[in-house]
């Protein structure tokens, strides 16, 4: 981690104008993503988060980035995703008649009644986008574990960042709870295996995405990029 460097306006200008030192100075700076204020990076203790002086937005964290743990949790989340989509989610029974639904049934229910536009969007929010994010993270992390980098890593990374507001599994989970309460008075509702798997999936997915911060991830990817070049050079 970079230490605190006393710097004034003058010294920064001088360094930045000095060709070779440009990159090292820039890598020691961080701009607030919410107000654009420049900060000099200082070392912070593990588990702490540096915040913007002006608007209090989070700037960077110093967490123990463990690829192994992130990969393990990511794989567990992926397995839970399969489990959550393989069993009944909720079951209802009213006077002898019973009916069950899986997670994707909600999408089909919308499309069967002509709300196909909404059905397509919900399919993305509940299933496709969360899945793409989980698979994307593993696509980056698994090769990184072997100090490698697959093609399209940049695109996948930007995709994960771009999709984050549109991945709504946790909202769907709360929607199911609201639906349960609505029906509880008039019918007998049972939670299926899927419900618990889905709840666990939400926790795992959130944890795996938070285990490595974006900037450290890129430091690791850059290192693997340098590692890729040297063996190729030896062969030639």
């Amino acid at each position: 981690m970079l230490g605190a460097r006393p710097s004034s306006d003058d010294s920064m200008t001088r360094r930045v104008n000095d060709g070779d030192l440009v990159e090292s100075v820039l890598s020691n700076l961080v701009a607030c993503h919410e107000c654009d204020l420049l900060h000099e990076k200082v070392a912070i203790e593990i588990g702490a988060e540096a915040r913007c002086m002006r608007c209090n937005a989070g700037l960077y964290t110093n967490q123990q980035n463990s690829i192994d743990r992130a990969v393990a949790v990511g794989l567990a989340a992926l397995i839970m995703f399969v489990v959550a989509n393989s069993f009944p989610f909720l079951q209802i029974s009213v006077s002898g008649n019973s009916q069950s639904m899986s997670i994707i049934s909600a999408v089909f229910a919308l499309s069967s009644e002509g709300q196909w536009l909404l059905a397509v969007v919900c399919f993305g929010f509940i299933l496709l986008f969360p899945l793409l994010r989980m698979v994307g993270l593993l696509y980056i992390l698994l090769p990184l574990r072997l100090h490698r980098r697959l093609p399209g890593t940049e695109l996948v990374f930007r995709g994960i960042v771009f999709l984050s507001p549109w991945s709504m599994m946790e909202i769907y989970l709360f929607g199911a709870i609201v639906a349960l309460v609505k029906l509880a008075a008039m019918a007998n509702i049972e939670l299926g295996h899927s419900f618990w798997a889905f709840a666990l999936l939400n926790v795992l997915a959130a944890v795996s995405l938070q285990m490595i911060d974006n900037h450290s991830l890129w430091e690791l990817i850059s290192e693997s990029r340098e590692g890729e070049e040297s063996p190729a050079g030896e062969l030639v």
């Binding site: 639904m101 999408v107 919308l110 709504m168 929607g175 609201v178 029906l183």
Partner: peptide, 14 residues
């Protein structure tokens, strides 16, 4: 979006 999901879940279940 919770509202939309509630409708979708109710429509699938009931």
């Amino acid at each position: 979006m919770i509202d939309v999901f509630v409708v979708a879940i109710l429509a699938a279940l009931v």
